[in-house]
Simulated assay, not measured.
Amino acid sequence: MARRALPLVAALALAGCANQPPEMPASWPARLQQVLPADVLLLGEQHDAAEHQRLQREAVQWLAARGTLAAVVMEMAEQGGSTAGLPRGATEAQAQAALNWQDKAWPWAKYGPVVMAAVEAGVPVLGGNLPRSQMRATMGQAQWDAHLPAPALQRQYTEIRDGHCGLLPEAQIAPMARIQIARDASMAQTATAALQPGKTVLLIAGAGHVWRSLGVPTHLGGGVKAQVVVARAGGAPATTHADADLLAPTPALPPRDACAELREQWKAAPRQP
Rank of each mutant, 00 (worst) to 15 (best):
E51P: 02
P237C: 04
W101H: 11
P149L: 11
A38N: 07
L202D: 06
L8F: 12
L99A: 07
T83W: 10
E58P: 03
G223V: 07
G16R: 04
A268E: 00
A5S: 15
Q56R: 04
V210L: 04
Q272C: 11
E23R: 12
A171N: 12
G122L: 10
A93Q: 15
A50G: 13
V40T: 05
G112K: 06
L153P: 00
R256V: 14
A238C: 10
A188S: 02
L214K: 04
A252S: 05
K225V: 14
A10C: 08
L262N: 02
V201L: 01
L99V: 09
L168P: 07
A252P: 03
H47E: 13
G89E: 13
Q227A: 15
A2V: 09
V115I: 12
A182V: 00
P7E: 12
D245I: 03
R178G: 10
A258F: 03
E78D: 12
T218L: 09
A109T: 11
A233D: 14
Q265I: 02
V230Y: 01
I181M: 11
L63H: 00
G206Y: 04
R161E: 13
L12H: 10
L202Q: 03
A50E: 14
L130P: 13
T218M: 09
H52N: 12
G85Q: 02
Y157F: 13
G221C: 04
A10G: 13
P255F: 02
Q134S: 12
A5G: 15
A191P: 07
G44L: 05
A238E: 07
T83A: 09
A268V: 00
S213T: 14
D103H: 07
A142T: 14
Q143E: 12
A193V: 07
P37G: 08
E170C: 03
E92D: 15
L153F: 11
L14D: 15
C259V: 07
A2G: 06
V114R: 07
R178P: 12
V73C: 03
C165S: 05
R88G: 15
R161T: 15
P124S: 09
L86C: 07
W108V: 09
R31F: 13
G80L: 09
T190G: 01
M1K: 12
N19C: 12
V115M: 10
A236V: 11
D103E: 14
A236C: 07
L148C: 02
A269T: 06
A205D: 06
A152N: 10
Q53F: 14
H52T: 11
A248H: 01
Q180N: 07
V201N: 03
Q96Y: 09
L247G: 02
C165H: 06
Q180H: 13
A260D: 08
D184K: 01
A77I: 08
W266R: 09
W211P: 05
W144P: 07
Q56A: 10
A15H: 04
K199W: 03
P217N: 03
W108P: 03
Q102M: 12
T91I: 11
P169R: 06
Q265K: 12
A109C: 05
P273Y: 08
L42T: 00
R3H: 14
L130W: 00
A70D: 03
Q272R: 15
Q265D: 05
K110E: 14
A242H: 00
H47R: 10
V230L: 14
A77Q: 02
D39G: 09
P217K: 04
V9L: 15
A50N: 10
P251G: 00
P251H: 00
Y111C: 05
A193L: 08
L168V: 10
A71W: 08
D39Q: 08
